[in-house]
């Protein structure tokens, strides 16, 4: 697996970027995760996850417009790369296989 492996939090971030599609930048991703998953996300943790994902080639980014509420700083919008899509699919695949492999009696409580 090596570099292409996805951590749990990374997976969430990557999926959220995909969900937000055109509007995936720092704050929107953070808020979306907080809303959907009902968990606190620190700017630091998210930022590291984003740069790590970008380094691994799962994400690419480009600068958008500067807005006054950002103090004149531009937004950096993220998009999932095909490589990223593959990684996500792979994770889903593994999960699916695992689910299928569970004998039906295992969840009889």
């Amino acid at each position: 697996m090596g570099k292409s492996s996805l951590g749990e939090f990374e997976e969430v971030v990557l999926l959220t970027v995909a969900v937000l599609y055109e509007n995936a930048y720092g704050i929107s991703i953070k808020e979306d995760i907080e809303k959907r998953l009902a968990r606190k996300v620190s700017v630091g943790a998210m930022r590291t996850a984003l740069s790590r994902l970008e380094k691994k080639g799962f994400l690419r980014s480009e600068f958008g417009d500067a807005t006054p509420e950002r103090g004149g700083k531009r937004k950096r919008f993220y998009k999932v790369t095909p490589h990223g899509k593959k990684a996500l699919e792979q994770v889903m695949e593994t999960r699916k296989k695992l689910w299928e492999a569970i004998p039906s009696v295992a969840f009889d409580f």
């Binding site: 720092g26 953070k30 600068f63 950002r70 700083k73 950096r76």
Partner: peptide
């Protein structure tokens, strides 16, 4: 490379 975006994010959050 990260500074502009990070600072922008923080500003936006701060305003909010």
């Amino acid at each position: 490379e990260l500074l502009e975006d990070v600072e922008g994010d923080l500003n936006e959050l701060f305003l909010l």
